[in-house]
Design a binder for these strands. Sequence first.
DNA 1: AATTTATTATTGATATATCAATAATAAATT
DNA 2: AATTTATTATTGATATATCAATAATAAATT
Lengths: 144, 144
Amino acid sequence: MAGGNIEDVILFQIDKTSKISKKYSQKEFDRINLGITIEQWILLKIIEEFEHISQKELADKSLRDPASITRTLDILEKKQLLLREPIPNNRRQYNIKLTSKGIAFVKKHMKMIKEHRKKSIEGFSTEEVKLLRSLLLKIQQNMS
Amino acid sequence: MAGGNIEDVILFQIDKTSKISKKYSQKEFDRINLGITIEQWILLKIIEEFEHISQKELADKSLRDPASITRTLDILEKKQLLLREPIPNNRRQYNIKLTSKGIAFVKKHMKMIKEHRKKSIEGFSTEEVKLLRSLLLKIQQNMS
DNA sequence: AATTTATTATTGATATATCAATAATAAATT
DNA sequence: AATTTATTATTGATATATCAATAATAAATT
């Protein structure tokens, strides 16, 4: 193994794996004219999980910048998939919630998403998945 | 393990790991006023490895879009770290090469980059690194 | 209670990501 | 050799990423 080859760098392979996987899913999204991006889907999914959530929490959970969340929420709000609900006695935050259209949207496409997740670890043993997860968490700790 | 938690999704953890690592490196870049981004560094590194390379090849190796490469190269050319060298008898491609300033730049900061790579897999056995790499490659194949 | 500090969301600026369209031209085909 | 096809780099449009600055206001301190 040559020291100078970027393909030998684990962080490069991690990024590459993430890019390839996102491209795969985005192509499937486009193929069925889903009308949203991967990043938008992830936000919808997080909101669905937590029922209601602030923009700050969304930024933290998705590891994105609050500014970026603001803009993506604008898009999803325009698509009527979610709404910013005012919080009584708190005029600094909103409760971000899915609309009924948003809930139906997530429900409708969850099966496809689960297939992508499954496909990614096809041929893996339970042990391998566990090990992979623990190694990834270890890197996250190392870089935090 | 609940089925509905996005943190349990391997692809999510892979992306998270990549984001955390990039943020770590970018912060270090900014701390020493390096003046470039991670993406820009990666291009410089690939060009350094291959000595000269076309934009198409750069796009393939970095898994980025040719349009994105065009724009990032404009920035790096303005910084005088690289140049687009015309190829005789080929007016469609360029040879992308580092300038002497670019070569010196990569050489100067390579030590820091190697420290980041090392830090990411701190506490890993040789076996674990090998296994992690093979699992990542397997996911890449699954999603290709 | 008044003042100070910290937090949240937004906007502007700049870089990156991706698709589609285009121009130039190299490569393949007839 | 002339024509067709494929490839490469670029530009425009739109989405995302990040930092810095800002406004609003909640929380903490005096």
